[in-house]
Structure formats: structure tokens, C-alpha cells
Design a protein around this nucleic acid. Structure first.
Lengths: 198, 198
DNA sequence: GTCTATAAAAGGATAGAC
DNA sequence: GTCTATCCTTTTATAGAC
């Protein structure tokens, strides 16, 4: 593997630091320390800190397929099960981080609500792409759902369950809060899968 | 009404600022500016900034009944409708703030996850009190729910729907994201209210 | 209990040599 | 493209008079 270029190193370090500490609590010095670079290098590639954030959000956008969806789905063929495989992937992250995991987009979205439009648009875009992927799963199983099921609303609801579950699991330091939320969603989906003409 | 004492002024100003800007982005100077006090006064009552935060979280804890639940419920007698009245109260806050509203506890919980235990415990306590109040609503209507309904899980799920809806509505600057989440919850609850022996 | 002044540190960003 | 040195601002917190 070719050595990573400086810009990539910065984006990857910032991605991890923003995820762990948030944007405001991550200093330029933190990023330089982790990358073993000097401030001249960072400011050569980025006009300022916010531009690093934008690059990070673009990296999440570009990484959703290879970094999130494909690892989460594995070879799972059933589209509905793919949704729960995705939620299971988040569960793994929660457990592996001793219940300190936070969705990087969700956390940044709450932290940076009064941010520059360039930032807000990318946060919204990241959410929208996640919801689109989940909606597509549900739509692939459309024939199994009750007629008239609103797949967009169901996909947004799935994101809500993930974000709310992550938030409560982290606050209480107990993955059971996440699990109960997913179980409720499972029950909800199961009820929508019960054909009225069954 | 008696003039507010200095400590109360500080807590109320900090409550609003932390809600609007977050904890990290609110400076002591911000609090002093809004209260027209000097730093000597603040540090007379609080050892440091984090102690102001703790006082704010205690104020939310003490205010849940008079400031949130009673205004939200109004005279609503039906316990299940009280839950949706509460969600409707949040909807009003979202609309009144042009979709910039964020739940203060949820936002702080995501921002401050690596915080001092004194802070984390109070965040968890605030969530727990909210969930307890909602669970109590559902339990009051226990006879109308399917046997075996898990009211604790349903109340946590209600918090999840609120937090996830607030997060998405704010990120997209569109209250419809909140509304669709609440509609999904309503459908979920309605399905649990359909007695199998109906 | 409140005032002014200020210490001490951290933060974002820049300059100019190499 | 990277280096060192540094400027300027903001921020938390303290000191000591009143």
C-alpha cells in the first residue's frame, strides 16, 4: 500500500478525533500531534479548521458503502434483514467501545446546528444517504409489506431508533437501551409485514 | 415577585446559553455578559464552569414537572394522549425556534460523553426521569394494552422517537421529519392497543 | 457579595526560511 | 510541501480592594 499522503492523514486523524471528542473539543494541535505533522502542512492543504471538518464529512459520505453498508451486510441477501444487520453493526461498535460509541454524524449534527451552510448541508446529506440506503432495503421487500406502507418514513424511523438507542446506551453506559429500541423496531416492522390477507 | 438572586440568574442564563450554543461553545464571559455580572460574582457561587453545568442539570431535573410535563399535558386526562401531548409540546418548540430546537439534555449528553461522573450521572438521571413519567402514563392505561406489553421499553422508545425526531428535524430544518417519527410511534402504539380479543 | 485588573494557558492562524 | 517561530485572541480562573 502506498504511503498515505498528508491530506489523507489529516482527514483520517480528524475523523477519529471529531468522533471521539467532538469538533469543538478537538484542537488543531490535537490533529498535528496525532499525525506528527506541523501546522504549516495542515494550513497548506486547508484554509482553516472548518475546512478539515468539511473534508471529514465528505469522507463519511464517500465511505458509507465500503466502510459501513458492505461490512454490516456481509452476504445477507434478505433486504429486511440487512436493515437489522446494519443495526447489529452499530451494536458491535457500542460494545467494542464500552458503550462510549456515538454516531459521528449524529453527534456533529447536534453540536454544530448553527454552523455554516456548507457544514449543515453535508450533515443533512449524510443522514439522507443513510436513510436512502435503508429505504431501498425496505422497498426491495415491498411486496411483503402492508399495502400503502410509507418506506421513507420507515427508513427515517430506523435512523431515529439507531440514533436514540446510541444516545441512551451511551448516556447510561448500557447497551441494553439500544437493544430494547431495536426490539421495538423489530416488532413494529413485523406488524407491518403481517399481511392483512394472511 | 422577589428579585432573583445572583445564583439563580447565573443558572438561568447558563441554561439558556448551553441550550442554544452547547456547553463547550458557551464561555464564562457569555454568561457574565448576559447576566450583567462580573466574574467575581460567578466564582463566588461556583468553583468553576463545570459546577455551573451541574447546577443547570439539577435545575432541569427539578423543573421537569412544572416546566415540561404540566404545561405539555394541560388538562389532558387520557394517559396515552398525555404522551402525545408531550411530543406535541416538543413540536411547538421546534416550530417556534424555526427548527433549530434541540433537546438540551440530549445535546449535552452527546457533547459531554467523556465528562465527569457527576455530570454523566445527572444526564442519565434526567433521561430516566423523563422515561419514568412516560412509562407511568402508559401504565395508567395498562388494561388497554396487549398483555405482556413492556412499558419501560415503550417509554424508552418514546424518548428515542423524540430525540431522533428532534435531531433530524433540526438537521434538515424541517419539522416534517419529527412529525413522521411521531406518526410511526402512534401507529406502533395503536397496534399495541388493539386487543387480541377485540 | 461585588468590583477591577490580571494572570496563565490554550486556541486558531500566519510568516518566512528551507 | 514542510519546517520553526510567533502573533493575536479567547478563555478559565485568581487576587485583592471595596
Amino acid at each position: 500500500m502506498a504511503p498515505k499522503d498528508t491530506r489523507t492523514k489529516i482527514v483520517e486523524a480528524a475523523m477519529e478525533l471529531f468522533w471521539q471528542k467532538g469538533y469543538g473539543s478537538t484542537s488543531i494541535a490535537d490533529i498535528l500531534s496525532r499525525t506528527q505533522l506541523n501546522s504549516g502542512s495542515l494550513y497548506h492543504f486547508f484554509p482553516g479548521k472548518q475546512d478539515v471538518l468539511i473534508a471529514v464529512l465528505d469522507a463519511y459520505r464517500d465511505g458509507i458503502e465500503p466502510m459501513l453498508l458492505q461490512p454490516a451486510w456481509g452476504g445477507e441477501p434478505d433486504p429486511v434483514e440487512r436493515v437489522f444487520k446494519l443495526l447489529g453493526f452499530y451494536r458491535t461498535l457500542i460494545v467494542e467501545t464500552d458503550c462510549t460509541y456515538g454516531c459521528p454524524i449524529g453527534s456533529l449534527a447536534l453540536e454544530l446546528h448553527e454552523a455554516d451552510p456548507a457544514v449543515r448541508d453535508r450533515l443533512a446529506q449524510n443522514f439522507a444517504n443513510w436513510v436512502d440506503a435503508v429505504r431501498f432495503c425496505y422497498e426491495q421487500a415491498a411486496s411483503r409489506f402492508r399495502p400503502g406502507t410509507d418506506f421513507q418514513a420507515l427508513a427515517e424511523f430506523t435512523l431515529t431508533v439507531m440514533e436514540g438507542g446510541v444516545m441512551q446506551a451511551r448516556t447510561h453506559r448500557d447497551v441494553a437501551y439500544f437493544d430494547r429500541g431495536v426490539a421495538q423496531l423489530r416488532a413494529h416492522v413485523d406488524l407491518l409485514l403481517e399481511r392483512e390477507t394472511a
